Amino acid sequence: MNNITIKIKSAGYLDDPEVIKDIQFTLRQGELVGLIGANGAGKSTTMRAMMGLLPKFEGTVSLDDIRYAYIPEHPIFYDELTLWEHLEFATAAFHLEKWEARANTLLTRFQLDHVKHDLPTGFSKGMRQKVMLVLAFLLKPELYIIDEPFIGLDPRSTKELLNMILEEKERGAAIFMSTHVLDTAEKICDRILLVSGGTLIAQGTLAHLRERSQLPNGSLLDCFDRLLEAVES
């Protein structure tokens, strides 16, 4: 996979065409980039803009030749398909063969093997989130776009998700993930993007953000607060 450069001059909806603006960054093979910001800062909108899901968009993003998997914050399922039938549908769409063994391994890792023939529409929030994770990891794409993956996950599943992310990084996949769990982002992200008011206010490694915020030993939360105060003042 070549580097993916995202240049968003503006993007939004019919009634608000500039929800986000002036956002530019690059995703590289084998790298985890974290996207952080307050509620309403534009994180989910940035992801939708990347995938061409917004009615208003001005900029350049090219994912045409890249297999990617999107894990939304709010899982969506077909009402009449079981968990296993969702896996069958996804693998057929991507023309994957000999996927059953990997699917069963993932279901076991995320503690879903006992409900694989049940309807996900009746699952708890955490279980529904894990189904989306299994679907994404089963496809083994070149790029993961993950929106708030830790919401609703129990500690064991959170650990398993982090292990899977590290495995996919080692495989060479690029991972773009938004999260409010800043202590986790601080530990696992190679680079971090800070957004506020629909605009990118800073990006770089934690060391870079510490230097820019003049907090040599600051946590990611400390740096984010300092940089946000500078923008708002």
Results as ranks from 00 to 15, higher is better:
146 I>D: 02
120 P>Q: 08
63 L>A: 06
53 L>C: 09
67 R>H: 13
101 A>W: 02
120 P>L: 07
103 A>Y: 04
137 F>T: 01
136 A>V: 05
99 W>A: 10
75 P>M: 11
64 D>G: 09
50 M>F: 04
91 T>W: 01
108 T>Q: 15
77 F>K: 10
109 R>A: 12
133 L>S: 03
136 A>H: 03
52 G>M: 12
99 W>F: 15
136 A>N: 05
115 V>L: 05
133 L>A: 05
121 T>E: 10
125 K>C: 11
122 G>L: 08
121 T>V: 15
92 A>I: 00
106 L>D: 06
141 P>C: 07
93 A>H: 06
114 H>Q: 14
53 L>R: 09
136 A>L: 07
104 N>Y: 11
128 R>C: 12
101 A>Y: 09
110 F>G: 06
54 L>A: 05
118 D>P: 00
78 Y>I: 15
73 E>A: 13
108 T>K: 15
100 E>F: 00
57 F>G: 05
70 Y>A: 07
98 K>M: 08
116 K>N: 11
117 H>T: 10
106 L>K: 09
111 Q>G: 02
110 F>M: 09
71 I>R: 02
58 E>M: 10
127 M>W: 04
139 L>Q: 13
129 Q>M: 13
114 H>G: 00
118 D>A: 15
128 R>D: 08
145 I>E: 01
46 T>W: 01
123 F>S: 08
75 P>F: 10
145 I>P: 00
103 A>G: 10
93 A>K: 07
135 L>I: 10
86 H>K: 12
84 W>M: 14
106 L>V: 11
55 P>S: 07
65 D>K: 14
128 R>T: 08
137 F>D: 02
127 M>T: 09
54 L>G: 03
82 T>N: 09
52 G>I: 13
71 I>P: 01
123 F>M: 12
49 A>I: 06
120 P>C: 13
48 R>I: 00
78 Y>S: 09
93 A>F: 13
59 G>R: 07
131 V>C: 14
117 H>C: 00
120 P>W: 08
138 L>N: 05
136 A>Q: 03
95 H>A: 15
125 K>P: 11
85 E>A: 09
116 K>M: 14
78 Y>T: 09
101 A>H: 12
78 Y>F: 15
103 A>C: 12
47 M>N: 03
72 P>C: 11
47 M>A: 06
57 F>N: 06
89 F>R: 10
62 S>W: 00
99 W>V: 07
121 T>L: 12
53 L>E: 15
87 L>H: 02
64 D>F: 03
77 F>V: 12
55 P>D: 08
107 L>H: 05
59 G>H: 10
122 G>D: 09
120 P>M: 11
61 V>D: 02
139 L>Y: 02
132 M>A: 13
62 S>Y: 03
106 L>G: 05
122 G>P: 04
89 F>I: 06
59 G>E: 09
121 T>M: 14
126 G>V: 11
133 L>P: 02
96 L>C: 03
92 A>M: 10
61 V>K: 01
82 T>K: 10
114 H>D: 13
96 L>Y: 06
92 A>N: 13
101 A>L: 13
142 E>Q: 15
77 F>A: 13
109 R>M: 11
